[in-house]
Design a protein around this nucleic acid. Sequence first.
DNA 1: CAATCCGGAGAACGGTTGTTTACTGAATGA
DNA 2: TCATTCAGTAAACAACCGTTCTCCGGATTG
Lengths: 206, 206
Amino acid sequence: MSHTPGVRQAQKQKTRQALLDAGLRLLEDQSLSSLGLREVTRVVGVAPAAFYRHFRDMADLGVALVEEALGSLHAMIRTVLAEQDGAQERIDRTVEVVAAHVRAHPAHVRFVARERHGGVRAVREAIGEQLALFADEVAEVLPGQSELTGWSERDAHMLAALYVDHLVMTASAFLEATPEEAERIAGRARQQLRLINLGCRHWLDE
Amino acid sequence: MSHTPGVRQAQKQKTRQALLDAGLRLLEDQSLSSLGLREVTRVVGVAPAAFYRHFRDMADLGVALVEEALGSLHAMIRTVLAEQDGAQERIDRTVEVVAAHVRAHPAHVRFVARERHGGVRAVREAIGEQLALFADEVAEVLPGQSELTGWSERDAHMLAALYVDHLVMTASAFLEATPEEAERIAGRARQQLRLINLGCRHWLDE
DNA sequence: CAATCCGGAGAACGGTTGTTTACTGAATGA
DNA sequence: TCATTCAGTAAACAACCGTTCTCCGGATTG
């Protein structure tokens, strides 16, 4: 049944990862629908035909990148939102974590922001699916916050969607900003989250 | 000084517009950085070289499309926000107007959403610039709302940015949605705006 | 009317693209 | 040990690309 690592499989995964890395790098200043197969293989230093041993086409490589880019996010935000400190502390920490993530993985963030509405259907849909899943997770964790006791599931989902969209917005704002603009972006994001949180506290008053 | 219309100039503007229209159409299922010059001229039925009589390159055509797509928006939202009805009515009307705009100009909306973070720097910056201008306009009109008396200019701008981002989000959500999903999207957008508005009403309490 | 302008045509250029084919040679497994 | 598997190679393919050049013919101008 050969589920041993194997020198063969290891090497294959290695060049596969090299293709993904090269693709991600090239996508920093162009979009997926214009990224050429030969362009990628040239960077890796491999024959064009070798590409087909790993991906059917560029769209296929794209969806692989989606999983790589969004896979790590889930656990992170889950833990951040689960913190039981006050609202202000949670907001500060969230923005902080987002900023750190953008600094650590700028290419991944850029890829997601760019291809979320990009020209390749399969990738667009993969990102949309992942973000929807993401919103579901957030919606599940939200009831743990004191401001949200008594909220309907529907309302929680509405809020979760707003959070996720705002998160993506903030991340891509960090991306396009110079280092000296970063603090201004962060401050604004915090205030916006405060505003939303304020709305939450009075949601059941009307 | 020849500022007469002239048969010459008229025909030139006509094919220029044809190039823009063809480009916009082709951009519905690809992104600008992969759109070919010949592809556009082929649709218009004109020689490839003729392209250069109107645009330096594809990026140039792109920024022209940005102005075409975002130019009409300004006046519209200005009038919507200026309405002095209650908050609920204003929210309903805003979402309604956005939905109508997406239905009327889907290609323009798609273009803006796609190229806002797209692979062509000049176009990306042009859109960012226009949206920032847009936020400025919104920030100027906002103090007319009763909920926002006593707000600092900085806070008004923070809110305006949130509104603009939410608007773009909502518009592109409408775009990707099937007709039967549209009402769900609209309902969610309205609730999100209500939540934000609720936050506004208590912004100066803390 | 004659001179000029200028949007567009047409052909040619060097270069790049995605994909297929037959192949090599090392890891694999009986 | 020997046959098999298979990731990667090398070459060839037709199709397409952006750009440049020269030229045409109708509008414009004086």
